[in-house]
Design a protein around this nucleic acid. Structure first.
Lengths: 198, 198
DNA sequence: ATTAAAAGCGACCGGTCGTGCTATTATTTC
DNA sequence: GAAATAATAGCACGACCGGTCGCTTTTAAT
C-alpha cells in the first residue's frame, strides 16, 4: 500500500493549487482528475465525497501554511523579530509555498461565510489557532519590552489581520504593486504605537 | 413600457439580495426566477446573458452603496466628522441598506480575483472611485487640522480598507460580536497618530 | 509464481447550469 | 375595439455537476 498514498498526495497538491485560483467550491472532480492524469471515478475512489476532498485539501493547505509561515519563526530571536518574521512570511506565503494565485485560506473564508458544514468549521479553527499564535507572539514581544506595556494582544492581532486582508485585496484584486510597501509601512507604524485601548 | 421596468427592478432587488449570500457567480437563473415569480426564460428576456445580469446587479448594488454610505455624509461637518460618518456607515451598510448577509462587493472582490471580464473591471472601478472619495475626505480632514499634517491620504486609506476587511472577516466569517468594538478602537487609534510615512 | 486486494477505468445516473427558440398572453397605442 | 408591441411561458439543447456501478489492470504479499 504505497502507490495509493502517493497518488493521493499528488491529488492533494493539485487540489490545493486549484483551490488557490478556483476556490474550494471550484474543486470540481473532472478537471482535477484531468490535471493528475486520472479518471473522475479513479480520483473519486480516494475521497468518498467532494466534501471529504475539500477537507483533505484544506488540511494539506494548512500543513503548507504551518510549514512556510509558523515553523521558520523558531530561527528568529524571540519577541518582536519573531513576530515580524511571521508577519512577513504570512504576507507572501502563497508565493513562498509555490502556490499559484492568492491565499486559498482567505478565499475560502469568503466562500464559507454563509455555507455551513465541516469545512467551514475546520477553517474557522485554523484561523483561531493561528490567531492564538499571533497573540502569543505579541504577548512575548511585550514581555521582551519590544512593544508598549499595556498592549492588548487581541486588539493588535485584529489589526494585523486587517493588514493582511488589505494586502490580499491590494495585490490580488486591485493588482497594485505599491500595496506591499503600504502594508509594511502600516505594520511599522502599528508596532510603534501603544495598544492599551481595546 | 412601464411594467417591464418595474419587474426588471424587482429582479435586480432580488439579485442583489441573492448576491449577498451566494455571490455574483451564485446568481443562478432558475432560483432567481422562482424568487420573483417568473420562469427562467421570462427572467432571461430582461438580460440577454448572465453576465449582463451580473453587471446590472452590480450597478444596482453600487447605487445602494452610494445611497447609504456616501450620500448621507453631506449632513456631517466637513473634515474628520464627515470621514468618521462615512467609515461608520461603511462598516454596517449591508444592514443599513436592508441587505441580508455580508457585503456583496467584498464577496465579489474575492470571486473575481482571478476571473477576468467586464464584471471585474466594473468592480475595480467602483473600488477605485470609493477610495478616491475616502482620500479626499482624508485630505479635507488634514486641511481642517483634524489629522496630522503630512498625513499621506493613500496610506491612511489603505489602512481604513484594511479595517473594513477585518471587520467583514470578524463579523461574517468568525461571527464574533466583539469585532465591532475592535474595529472602532483601531479606527480611533489610527486617526490619532501621524501618517507621514508611506 | 500465485493470488487476493488495491487502484483505476468507462459508462452512466439524475440534476442543474446558461442559452437559445417559438408561442402565447398582457399591455399599450392608435 | 383593433393593431402593434412588450412581456412571459414553454420547451429543448448541450455541457457540466457530484456520485455510483461493474469491470479490468496493476500492485503487493505470500
Amino acid at each position: 500500500m504505497a502507490k495509493g498514498t502517493r497518488t493521493r498526495s499528488r491529488i492533494l497538491i493539485a487540489a490545493v493549487e486549484t483551490a488557490c485560483t478556483n476556490g474550494f467550491n471550484g474543486l470540481n472532480l473532472q478537471p482535477l482528475a484531468d490535471r493528475v492524469g486520472l479518471t473522475k471515478s479513479g480520483l473519486y475512489a480516494h475521497f468518498r465525497s467532494k466534501e471529504a476532498l475539500q477537507l483533505a485539501a484544506l488540511e494539506h493547505a494548512a500543513g503548507l501554511f504551518q510549514l512556510s509561515v509558523v515553523a521558520p519563526a523558531k530561527t528568529a530571536p524571540a519577541g518582536l523579530p519573531r513576530l515580524r518574521g511571521v508577519f512577513e512570511r504570512w504576507l507572501e506565503w502563497p508565493v513562498g509555498a509555490g502556490l499559484p494565485g492568492h491565499c486559498p485560506l482567505f478565499a475560502a473564508a469568503v466562500e464559507f461565510d454563509v455555507e455551513e458544514g465541516p469545512v467551514r468549521e475546520r477553517l474557522m479553527r485554523l484561523f483561531r489557532d493561528f490567531r492564538e499564535v499571533l497573540e502569543q507572539l505579541v504577548a512575548s514581544s511585550v514581555r521582551h519590552g519590544h512593544l508598549a506595556p499595556g498592549t492588548v494582544p487581541r486588539q493588535l492581532v485584529h489589526e494585523l489581520v486587517a493588514l493582511r486582508y488589505a494586502h490580499h485585496w491590494g495585490l490580488d484584486f486591485m493588482r497594485e504593486a505599491a500595496t506591499a510597501e503600504r502594508t509594511r509601512a502600516a505594520f511599522t507604524a502599528l508596532i510603534g504605537r501603544g495598544h492599551s485601548i481595546g
